[in-house]
Design a protein around this nucleic acid. Structure first.
Lengths: 115, 115
DNA sequence: GCGCCTGTCAACCGATCGGTTAAATGAAAC
DNA sequence: GTTTCATTTAACCGATCGGTTGACAGGCGC
């Protein structure tokens, strides 16, 4: 199992079904049955996807009678965005400036992002 | 194999070794041996990681005599950032506002992000 | 040419992944 | 208490993943 928080989040996002579930949860809480409805997939499969998302902290789950509604936990995504932000300057600068930077860099001033 | 572009990128990023390689490449091009040096891992393993990153479009590779230097391809990360950006408003708003939004949403105006 | 250095390919390995079906759990409804 | 609905667990499956070792290929120095 991967204990690394960032890895768990990226891995959770690396599946289109799970991303679709997140997208659906933007409209509000939803039960497992509701979440499963658009997919050609058994309920246990969806349940597993929800567990992956929950383990990654991307969603949380409630308890309402026999329902276990899932809800978006957006702060987890913020962590991912912050990691990405380190690289923004590499694509924000024009291609030419990037090339200049990459070739110039040979002597000192690396200051790359932390992994 | 997963053909989905976004999935390939997230999957590539879901490994700490590969993220460390990307981080290293921020300091400029590097050969496979240079990239492998910090890791307790065989060269073919690193070569495989590079192939995953290349297939995801996150790096590109040159050809200089017997070296195959790898270089960061930051525009690929921009695509990931744009996907994430859809969710920014969910973590940018305060917790209370989010809760209000999620409960209010029951009637209309979903406008969630596209998967 | 020969050897050396760099890198990849091929085959294998155990672990994890994404899915299945069948059975078990929990709470509500009757 | 039995049924019914919502969900999870367990066991299994084939495919992929992340790593290994060993053989192979390309380009340079001598």
């Amino acid at each position: 199992m991967q204990t690394d928080d960032l890895s768990a989040k990226f891995a959770a996002l690396a599946d289109p079904t799970r991303r679709a579930i997140l997208s659906r949860l933007c409209e509000g809480e939803a039960s497992v049955n509701e979440l499963a409805e658009p997919f050609d997939m058994s309920l246990p499969a969806v349940s597993k996807h929800l567990k992956v998302l929950e383990m990654a902290g991307l969603i949380s789950r409630g308890r309402e009678a026999q329902w276990r509604p899932a809800r978006l936990e957006p702060m987890a995504l913020k962590g991912v965005a912050e990691w990405l932000e380190h690289y923004r300057r590499y694509w924000d600068s024009s291609f030419d400036r990037l090339d200049a930077y990459l070739t110039k860099i040979q002597k000192g001033d690396p200051r790359g992002p932390r992994n």
